[in-house]
Design a protein around this nucleic acid. Structure first.
Lengths: 148, 148
DNA sequence: AATTTTACTTGCAAAAATCAAGTTTTAACG
DNA sequence: CGTTAAAACTTGATTTTTGCAAGTAAAATT
């Protein structure tokens, strides 16, 4: 029987989570980090930079520069907050939205393909298990620290 | 209901899989990539460099340099193959073994803590689901390509 | 025997990460 | 209030990683 760690290690490896690049959309090469940023911003509307950087656990200075790149790529818009002038709020541009949606589509398709190798019962079990796992991680006192 | 992609995205984020650094062992700062390398080498005895690099999906040149670093850190040993002189075989040094075991211990403890927030039935279900998922990914035609 | 392929290393340039310092604005405190 | 401290970002400088191309040596192919 595999240990928990082995299961996770295999999963991480199979998903290619260590890969630098995520996907091509149109003529754009999107990195993994960029796709995560697009995802986080699409989940929140007008989120402060700090909040998104924290959500991703990346250093704010690295994040700041990454945002600058993505603004140049016309994926992200940065607007000053009215309430607090120190804060800049992030949102997706029209193109950013398109790209985020395209990535979403690709990933969903990819996952569908993976799940197509299971029967209905297994699919449901696995999905429910992932939700359980996420819930347990949310409760964990050690989670999201640099351990993995 | 969350989409599959959301489930995965959350999981990846909660696990901190995007973090650069993995863990401290003694006075050593081990990066995520290094811990993956230690893991892969510990799973195989005397594996050729190419094989390990492929297993991790990293570019062989990047890998070559990383190995050089880890040799300097006295974590890895590289010995020329007798059978084929192009090939170098990788193995862990004594210290490398200690470090790998310590990481293994930490991760297992971490995972135990996470799983402690579930009941017995849930634990088993989740573990079985992960094995199912890994199996499905192994069968997938699109898996481990730079999509995620 | 000549050519191709494989396994690995090295050089170089681009991207990313880290750390420290600096700006501006808000919050906190005596 | 007014001064000080903290928060939210940006920028600069240095180091690490990465990716691609080119190079070397050994094995496989023809």
């Amino acid at each position: 029987m595999e240990t928990k760690r082995e299961l996770f290690q295999t999963m991480v490896k199979r998903f290619g989570l260590l890969n630098r690049n995520c996907c091509e959309v149109g003529s754009l090469d999107i990195t993994m980090v960029q796709s995560q940023i697009l995802y986080e911003i699409s989940k929140r509307s007008n989120a402060p930079m700090q909040e998104v950087a924290d959500a991703l656990g990346t250093d704010i200075s690295t994040f700041s520069r990454q945002i600058q790149n993505m603004i140049k790529l016309d994926l992200i818009k940065k607007s000053p907050s009215e309430a607090d002038k120190r804060i800049y709020l992030l949102s997706l541009t029209e193109q950013g939205n398109k790209v985020a949606q395209e990535i979403q589509r690709e990933m969903e398709a990819h996952l569908d393909e993976i799940f197509s190798h299971m029967n209905e019962f297994e699919k449901e079990t696995v999905l429910r298990s992932m939700a359980l796992l996420n819930g347990a991680m949310a409760k964990s006192s050690v989670c999201c620290k640099p351990i993995f």
